[in-house]
């Protein structure tokens, strides 16, 4: 790209594709995972997250626009099976970004997340299910 005077998208893309093919062919001699698969997993995590964001924000909007607010908030303790700071941080970020659940505290040994949920009888199952889905997707990204 820097050797040519004119930078064109076509030559860059074709060179990148050839590089991908060569790297895929040399896969047996490299110990780490093929990085395109990791990229696909990151994309899948992002799509799961967008779907959760829309679904649960519709629930929260319904709660807000009721004529009389009848919610039963509370704090749940969620046990997580993830290890390491990166995984727990990613899980807490995703749980906080889905509305209807805010991570308030994390225990010092990274085992228990304390989550404030907006409506305990309705949302606690949803929070646990989305936690399981997020954990699966995160494990696929961070673990080889």
């Amino acid at each position: 790209m820097f050797f040519l005077d004119n930078w064109s998208v076509l030559s860059f893309t074709s060179g990148y594709l050839i590089g991908l093919l060569i790297l895929f062919g040399l896969q047996r001699f490299i110990s780490s995972k093929y990085y395109l698969f990791t990229l696909l997993d990151v994309l899948k995590l992002f799509l799961i997250f967008i779907a959760e964001l829309f679904a649960s924000s519709i629930v929260v909007i319904g709660k807000i626009l009721q004529p009389r607010i009848t919610i039963k908030p509370g704090i749940l303790a969620l046990n997580t099976s993830l290890e390491g700071e990166v995984e727990v941080t990613l899980l807490a970020l995703l749980i906080t970004l889905t509305p209807g659940s805010v991570v308030i505290e994390i225990s010092p040994d990274n085992k228990v997340l304390y989550v404030h949920a907006m409506d305990i009888p309705e949302l606690s199952d949803g929070v646990r299910q989305s936690q399981i889905r997020f954990e699966k997707a995160i494990k696929r990204v961070t673990r080889p």
Partner: peptide
């Protein structure tokens, strides 16, 4: 304080000990 409508508080015991 949490709102009086709250039904569950798992964090209180944890905060008291830590």
């Amino acid at each position: 304080e949490l709102a009086p409508e709250s039904v569950q508080d798992d964090l209180k015991a944890f905060i008291d000990e830590y």
